[in-house]
Computed example of a mutant assay.
Amino acid sequence: MNGRMLVLLSGIVGSTAYGLAHAGSDVDRLGVYAEPTERILGLRPPGESLVTTKPDVTMHEAAKFCRLTLRCNPSVTETLWLDGYEVCTPLGEELIGIRSAFLSAARVRNAYLGYATSQFKKLRDRGDGTFSADLRKRTEKHARHLVRLIQQGEELHATGALTIRLAEPDRVRDMGAWIADQPDRALVLISRSESRFDKPGVLPAVPDEPAVEAWLQRVRAAHYTPPKGTD
């Protein structure tokens, strides 16, 4: 990572945050950082994401993080709803404070149901459950993610809030195994979820982009160092 880069907010996400981790699970971290503003304004702006494995860390620069969250990308959105953080600066606290500004009805539906549907396609492509033990584990993992995404998307739609740690992780595990046996069982959950999304929810039609833009401009102002020799 760039030595001048500042992490604004970072926490543990994924199976550990959901309460689905087991002894061999990876610990995934995701966060948002700010590049020095003068670098962004230069001829060769830096990249907007930093990804490492062992440890598994994904960091998005502030502007990209905002764009992804405005699209209600589930894996990024959840970062603003964690129970706790390993890094949380004042600007990170401000970001958490405007987390509802990123939400909008159509984008939550498209993101969460869309991701759930993509998980279903992965399940369906793997046949009827008669495969190797390793493939079986991956299939159950996709099925668990499908169940979780549906639950979390419906919660956002109905309440405008997101609970990251699952209330009944064992039930989600059992449902994952049940769906992995016969992937078409997932169609029942997806159809039911579509019906729930069709009912009125609490989310606005459009996100509060001015609030997000104002936060991002505060980040830029806080991380700008004028070139030497200027007033």
Rank of each mutant, 00 (worst) to 15 (best):
A186R: 04
A158Q: 12
L189P: 00
A167P: 12
I164V: 15
L166P: 14
A177P: 00
I190L: 15
E168M: 07
R173T: 03
G176D: 01
T159E: 11
M175R: 14
P183Q: 06
A161G: 10
S195A: 14
L189N: 02
S195G: 12
L156D: 03
A158H: 05
L156R: 02
V172E: 06
D181W: 03
A158P: 05
R192Q: 14
R165L: 14
Q152V: 08
G160T: 05
T159C: 06
F197P: 02
R185L: 07
A186W: 03
E155F: 09
L162T: 11
S191M: 11
S195N: 12
S195P: 00
E168R: 07
D174A: 12
E168N: 12
P169S: 12
A180F: 01
V172G: 02
D170H: 03
D184H: 10
S191I: 05
I179V: 06
R185I: 03
R185G: 00
L187T: 04
I179P: 00
M175Q: 12
R192T: 09
P169T: 06
G160N: 08
S191G: 12
G176A: 04
Q152K: 13
A161T: 14
Q152I: 10
A177N: 01
E154R: 15
L189R: 09
A177D: 03
P169C: 10
R196G: 08
D181S: 04
Q182W: 07
T159Y: 09
G176H: 07
E194K: 15
V188F: 12
E194N: 08
L166Y: 14
V172N: 08
S191W: 12
A177E: 10
E194T: 08
I190V: 13
G153I: 10
Q152E: 02
G160W: 03
T163S: 15
I190S: 04
R185V: 01
G153Q: 09
D181T: 04
P169A: 06
D174I: 00
W178R: 12
R171D: 13
P183E: 10
P169M: 12
R196I: 05
R173S: 02
P183Y: 08
A161P: 00
T159W: 10
D184S: 09
F197G: 05
D184F: 09
I179L: 11
D170E: 14
G176E: 03
Q182I: 05
D184K: 11
A167V: 13
G153L: 10
D181G: 01
R192G: 10
R185C: 01
D184N: 06
R165S: 13
V172I: 14
R171T: 06
A167F: 09
L187G: 04
G153S: 08
L189G: 00
I179Y: 05
Q152H: 11
Q152M: 15
R165Q: 15
T159A: 07
F197L: 06
L189I: 01
L166F: 13
A158N: 02
G153N: 08
A180I: 01
F197W: 11
E194Q: 13
D184Y: 10
E154C: 12
L187R: 14
V188T: 09
R196V: 07
Q182Y: 07
A158Y: 04
E168Y: 11
D174H: 04
A177M: 05
I164M: 15
G160C: 10
L189Y: 11
